[in-house]
Design a binder for these strands. Structure first.
Length: 269
DNA sequence: CCCGTGCCCTGGCGGC
DNA sequence: TGCCGCCAGGGCACGG
């Protein structure tokens, strides 16, 4: 599922491939992905030039002349750039561009979302208005202040995009493993030093993952943003029953905040 | 404030 | 082999 590094990889490719292109028309083939008025979505985007793509946390933003389209890929959303190939049943939104390219939003589970915003309201309205800072942008002090009074588990805090944005289930597990913190620890029981360590781990892991995503993309003709390479760096996530790379104890899968959570019960305390 | 649950959705998998 | 039922998960609404 796309978390910050995967979304960043998609952003870079789309930015490179589509900047300067102009939207000719938009087809909405499955409606509930578009959360704004459907008619406005298809009419207002016509003749808008793509200034580029930006990103906030896991949100991808298509920057146009007068509008921004705020996109969340959720679990399985991905983009393809095609020309006139047959349309797959999983391609739900199609942006026809004047260059002849078609930007196609593909989402098997149909969980992704798109919001149309006028530029003045992009950051002041839902969904971006309440988004927390990314690990790279938040300070140690800010982060500790945000978690120190919480009675929630640290895992659920890391997944809460209003606290800190960009981490999903995979990178949250990896972050806590790197920081040697057990996912069921409560925010209010995390020390200042541990808080710093979690933040440092999150930054480091996201940074490495973005680098790997960048190196993996060689062909722009296949589906965009699928790296596959970061999986080789995982220490605990999806490693149930495998030995911990540090202490060789068996990795456990537990349930925290309703999410499958991988942990080394020996290293993480 | 926080938690669990359900919802959205469908491919894939385990069980029989 | 085939079918059924359940799980996965990001984010939010809801009730406790």
């Amino acid at each position: 599922m796309p978390e910050l590094p995967e979304v960043e990889t998609v952003r870079r490719i789309l930015d490179e491939q589509l900047k300067g292109d102009v939207i000719q028309s938009v087809d909405i083939r499955y409606q509930s992905i578009v959360k704004s008025d459907q008619d406005e979505f298809t009419t207002k985007l016509v003749n808008q030039t793509i200034d580029g793509f930006s990103r906030m946390g896991k949100y991808l933003i298509m920057n146009l002349d007068y509008y921004d389209v705020i996109i969340h890929l959720r679990m399985e959303g991905k983009f393809f750039i095609k020309h006139h190939e047959e349309i797959s049943s999983h391609e739900h939104i199609i942006f026809h561009l004047k260059s002849g390219k078609e930007l196609r939003y593909h989402d098997v589970r149909k969980f992704g979302t798109m919001h149309l915003k006028t530029k003045e309201t992009t950051f002041s309205t839902y969904p971006l208005n309440a988004l927390g800072k990314e690990p790279e942008a938040i300070t140690e002090v800010e982060f500790y202040q945000k978690i120190k009074h919480k009675k929630a588990t640290i895992k659920s805090i890391l997944l809460d995009q209003h606290v800190i944005s960009g981490l999903g289930n995979i990178y949250a597990d990896e972050t806590l493993f790197a920081a040697k913190i057990h996912p069921t620890r409560l925010g209010c029981n995390i020390t200042n030093e541990e808080s710093n360590s979690i933040l440092h781990a999150a930054k480091h892991i996201l940074y490495e993952a973005v680098l790997l995503g960048g190196t993996t993309i060689r062909s722009y003709t296949s589906q965009l943003g699928v790296t596959g390479l970061f999986q080789t760096k995982l220490n605990v996530h999806l490693k149930k029953g495998k030995p911990c790379p540090v202490c060789h104890h068996e990795i456990q899968k537990i349930r925290v905040a309703g999410r499958g959570t991988y942990v080394c019960e020996s290293c993480q305390t």
